[in-house]
Amino acid sequence: MSKTTRREFLKIGLAAAGGALAASGVEIPLFSAKDSSMQTQLNSANTQLINLQNQLKTVTGFLTLNVKEQALLEPIVETIIPSDSSGPGAKEAGVIYFIDRQLAGDYGQSANMFMDGPFAIPSSSPIVAPGIPTSKAYLALYPSAPTSMTYSGTVVPRVGSGINYQYPLNLRAFWKSGLEAVQNYAKSSTYGATFQKLSADKQLALLLDLWAGKPASFADDFGNIIRPVDFAYELSFMTWAGFTMDPLYGGNQNMVGWQYMGFNGVNLGNAYGEGLSQKDLMIATTPTRLKPASLAQYQQAANGGA
């Protein structure tokens, strides 16, 4: 950072600013024509830059990911969405902050999930559930029903479906086990080093292993086993969510994910005075790339009567 010029430094600072700052970050007139001297302009720019840096410092911390998890998850999300010649990736989008916020909140607490027992973990072998107890309420309605029931038949739900996750853990606890299990697999004889120290090829191969159901024994630091594919799903799903959801959630910073995809966000055609209606966009015969607008920007414009 110290080698950069002041103006380059300014650009970097703005680009790294959190999504919530995007509007002010790109709209501030750094060199106003009204300023009479270069010194005044530089002072003004400096003040704004310091303000932005201070704001940035307040939104790029961690609420729940511990230091080990931070160090491990960063290269994982950057493997899933690499920063490459096609454009910015998970790093620039701040995906790790999105995941941290989610795991620290309702998502991690499984607040909107049905979490009552009994629990039957899906597997490729049949669930031959021995004697699952009948609920008291069911017996009250059907007094002649047996007090426990047995079943046969394979139950293999689609990964990512609403019935696939059957662990008696909230998602924060599941991620803790899953991240430990990834690191344990990386350090096993198959790969032989922490995930962070593996080559990019090996990192990619390891994540694809999980999708292929490997390793057979995928266990956290205390030997609790989870299905590799279940955690692989979580990693891919949440990383892409962090790249594509509104910046209010902490990822997709500066809307780099939306810009990459050509998505206009909540720019319904006139967020920056383009003069288009959404109907125009709907029936257009050529693609129309607009500068995306975030939910916060949309609300600010709406509140301002724009």
Partner: peptide, 10 residues
């Protein structure tokens, strides 16, 4: 004949 799994999440 199968055990029915509950929908746990959206």
């Amino acid at each position: 004949t199968q055990f029915a799994l509950p929908v746990r999440r959206y």
